[in-house]
Design a protein around this nucleic acid. Structure first.
Lengths: 116, 116
DNA sequence: CGACTCGTACGATAGGCATCGTAGTACGGG
DNA sequence: CCCGTACTACGATGCCTATCGTACGAGTCG
C-alpha cells in the first residue's frame, strides 16, 4: 500500500490520553501563549505561524508553538512551507469538559477588565 | 475605635482586581499546588498547613502556600501558631465564573483516569 | 520559665525557561 | 536551478523556581 503520508515532515503530538492538565495549565500560564490560543479560538480555524503578530522574534515564536503542541493544546501540520496551527478542541473537551471554554471566557473577561 | 487586628501577624494578599489569570494558571500548573487546592476544595473549609501530608519538606511546603497566596488562589491567616488556608472561591468565581469548578473537575477527571 | 510545635527566613543548588541571534533546512515559483 | 519565504536548530544568557537544610521567631502548654 502506498504511504498515507500527507507531508514528508511529521511533528510529534501527545495522544489524547497523554495530555496532562498540569502541562496544559503551564502552557497557558504564559501571556504570549495564552494570546496565541485566544486568537486561534477566535478564528476557529487553522492559522499559519506567520499569521500571528507577536512582539517576539521568530525563534521565540517557534518555541511557544512547540510548548503548546507538546502540551496537547494545539495540533501542528506542515502544508507546504507553512505550518498550520489548530486548537485541539475535541481532545481537550473530551478530556476536560468545559475547561477550555472556561479558560477562554476567563481570559476574555480579564482582557475586557484590564484593557486589551 | 479599637484596632480590628485579629492576629498580630498579617500576610499580604492581592486584592480581587489584582488577581491575574496567568498567575492563577501558573500556580495551579505545579502538581503539589494543584493537590493542595484540590484538598482545600474537597474539605470546603480552612485547613492549617500541617494538615497536608506532602512529600516535600516544610520549607518547600511554605513556598508552595506562598505562591498560591500571592497568586490570589488561597487566603492565609494566622490563628495562634497555626496558619489557616482557605480557597478564595468567591473572588475567583467573581472574576472568572466557572473557571475554578472547571479546573477542579478537570483535575478530578485526570486523577480518576490516571489513578490517584 | 522551658520545652515543644508550627511555620518562616535565608542561602545554596540544580534545573527549567523565555528570549535572542545566527546559521541552516524544506518547500514552492520563476 | 536559484531565490525567496517559512520555519528550525543550536548555543548563549539571564532569570525564575522547586527543592533542601539549618537556624530562627511566634504561640501554647505544663
Amino acid at each position: 500500500m502506498t504511504s498515507p503520508v500527507v507531508s514528508s515532515r511529521d511533528l510529534p503530538h501527545p495522544a489524547r490520553e497523554e495530555i496532562r492538565l498540569e502541562s496544559v495549565l503551564h502552557a497557558l500560564s504564559d501571556p504570549m501563549r495564552l494570546r496565541i490560543v485566544r486568537e486561534l479560538a477566535a478564528v476557529g480555524d487553522e492559522l499559519s505561524c506567520s499569521r500571528f503578530d507577536l512582539p517576539v522574534t521568530k525563534s521565540t515564536t517557534t518555541h511557544h508553538f512547540r510548548v503548546l503542541r507538546e502540551a496537547g493544546v494545539i495540533r501542528q501540520i506542515y502544508r507546504g512551507t507553512a505550518k498550520m496551527n489548530g486548537l485541539r478542541r475535541d481532545d481537550l473537551d473530551g478530556l476536560f469538559p468545559g475547561l477550555l471554554d472556561a479558560l477562554l471566557d476567563a481570559a476574555a473577561r480579564q482582557a475586557a477588565r484590564v484593557g486589551v
